[in-house]
Amino acid sequence: MISSVRGPVQHIGLDHAVVEVGGVGLAVQATPATLATLRRGQEVQLATALVVREDSLTLFGFADADARELFGLLQTVSGIGPRLALATLAVLEPDKLRAAVADGNITVLTQVPGIGRKGAERLIVELRDKVGPLTAADGPSTRVDAERVRGQVTEALLGLGFPAKQAEQTVEAVLADDASIDTSTALRRSLAALGRKK
């Protein structure tokens, strides 16, 4: 089991990055939000899960071990393979996914392409007792989350070549509208806002 990789980023694609480890370039499948935080030539460390099939070995990468754990749990649900598990984490960050499962929120879960009402119901039934306790959304915790999102999205925009000041102002404006949004949503809204400014 390859549980993590560390090395310089050689290439960033739409759905994967190539990380050089010991002179070997490893293709790592990842979510758009994770890929957006990477820069070519920059040293990176990703938590990983290796999925072995008869005809392939596929490495999936995550920003942290928490996301990797959820990736594994999702695949214990009948009908969910590694691609759909990754798609779920691309749409729903770990905390949002846990909250949706704990609350039985089918509407949120069906936002994931490939998960219908029955699939969402299976997720809730099979994972409700496994996803772990939710942290209370008190003031300080919410502020820490907002700071984390601000830093990650700003870093991602810088990696995409936007000027630092413009990136910071855009992220600030997006979070001023809704400080509770996750990194993926904040990044999408920031990119949309920057696109309108061109």
Rank of each mutant, 00 (worst) to 15 (best):
M1G: 15
L84V: 05
R39H: 05
G151I: 01
L74V: 06
T58L: 13
A49N: 09
T76Y: 00
I2K: 06
T48E: 04
A17H: 02
P113E: 00
I12V: 15
A146W: 03
D129M: 00
Q42E: 15
R122W: 04
V131Q: 04
L46K: 08
G72K: 10
A167N: 00
L194T: 07
T170S: 09
A100L: 05
R117Q: 15
L97M: 11
G13L: 02
V91D: 02
A156H: 09
D145C: 08
D145N: 14
H16N: 10
L70W: 10
K198D: 03
A192K: 13
M1K: 10
A67V: 11
L109R: 05
E155V: 00
G13W: 01
G195L: 06
A47Y: 02
V9I: 13
A49I: 05
T135F: 08
A192L: 13
K96M: 13
A49K: 05
S141F: 11
E93L: 01
A100I: 03
Q42Y: 04
R98V: 01
I115P: 05
R148S: 10
A192I: 04
Q45N: 03
R83K: 15
T88F: 09
L57M: 12
L157E: 08
P8W: 07
V174Q: 11
S56D: 14
V21Y: 05
L26I: 14
A36N: 07
E43I: 07
G151M: 12
E121R: 03
T170I: 09
D66A: 14
D178V: 04
T142G: 15
R196N: 04
L92N: 06
R117D: 07
V112G: 12
E69V: 03
E69A: 13
F71P: 12
V18I: 15
D95N: 04
T88E: 09
N105Y: 02
G7D: 04
L109N: 09
A90S: 14
G195K: 04
V91Y: 01
L123W: 07
T107K: 15
S141Q: 14
V5K: 00
G81F: 10
Q169F: 01
H16R: 14
V52M: 08
G161T: 00
S78V: 11
L123K: 03
V24M: 08
L134S: 08
D64V: 03
P8R: 10
G81P: 11
D55F: 01
L57Q: 11
H16M: 06
A193G: 07
I12Q: 09
R128G: 14
P32I: 00
T110H: 02
H16W: 10
L38P: 11
R143T: 13
A90I: 01
T37L: 07
M1A: 14
R188F: 02
A33N: 03
V44G: 10
T76R: 13
G116S: 09
K96V: 15
A167I: 00
S4M: 09
V153H: 00
E147A: 11
E168Q: 13
